[in-house]
């Protein structure tokens, strides 16, 4: 399947390659194989023949969809941070926690580091990444010149990708529920459902981001 969709052709000869490092060439970041870049048809993808890494994906109106999802993610993160996330009650005593409380729950000594890491991984990194992508893609989608420092912004967004752990946190909630079932009664707050939706949006959002296409359009727009 993946191979059938391959649209990159091998470079014909070394002499053609050695002439200049033109933007027409594309090298697989994982195995260094060199190709003459050819943009696949809409909805198709270009796959490295040697290591099967996806090099280019094209989706209809990816730019505007990334922007729309980015906006939705920003709103959901902001809301999910402040509304109560989970509520608990036992023996007449109750407690509710927002994402902010959860992220700052390690209060003593070195455990503050864990707290900082949690805030980063589940709130800050996904939010910053989304905002950076909007910043980079906004002007391009609307046919303007790229924003200042758009390249650094996009590179940072791509570097942050593995550190955005929204969906991991969602599974963590399920485990937390199971752990306290015999201790107290747990209920979901409104922010929990926002967060569940958020996890889905983040995954779709990532699927639309094709690094090569965005670099290309950044370059073309300048």
């Amino acid at each position: 399947m993946a191979l059938a969709a391959t649209q990159v052709s091998d470079t014909k000869s070394e002499s053609a390659v050695a002439k200049t490092a033109s933007s027409e060439l594309i090298a697989c970041p994982n195995c260094d194989w060199l190709y003459q870049a050819r943009i696949p048809e809409e909805g198709g993808r270009a796959v490295c023949k040697r290591c099967h890494t996806v090099l280019i994906t094209t989706r209809q109106e990816a730019g505007i969809r990334i922007l729309a999802l980015g906006l939705a993610i920003t709103i959901l993160v902001a809301a999910a941070v402040f509304f109560p996330f989970l509520q608990i009650s036992a023996a007449g005593i109750g407690n509710r926690a927002s994402l902010l409380d959860i992220a700052t729950s390690f209060r003593s000594g070195a455990l503050v580091l864990v707290s900082a890491a949690t805030v980063m991984l589940i709130v800050l990194v996904p939010l910053v990444r989304t905002l950076l992508l909007c910043y980079v893609l906004g002007p391009i989608v609307f046919g303007r010149r790229p924003a200042p420092h758009a390249r650094i912004a996009f590179r940072t967004a791509q570097e942050l990708k593995p550190w955005a752990m929204t969906e991991v946190f969602a599974i963590g909630c399920a485990v937390a529920l199971a752990k306290v079932t015999d201790l107290a009664r747990l209920e979901f707050g409104p922010a929990f459902w926002m967060f569940a939706l958020l996890s889905v949006f983040v995954v779709i959002h990532d699927a639309y981001v094709c690094s090569w296409s965005i670099w290309k359009s950044l370059e073309d727009a300048e």
Partner: peptide, 27 residues
């Protein structure tokens, strides 16, 4: 990254389960 689940569970529980003397959870 999926290994972080347990850390997040601890974060969730220790902020949520603070029911004075009845039950409390600390990391």
């Amino acid at each position: 990254r999926w290994s972080m689940i347990d850390v997040f569970v601890v974060a969730i529980l220790s902020s949520l389960v603070q029911l004075s003397v009845v039950a409390s959870i600390h990391p």
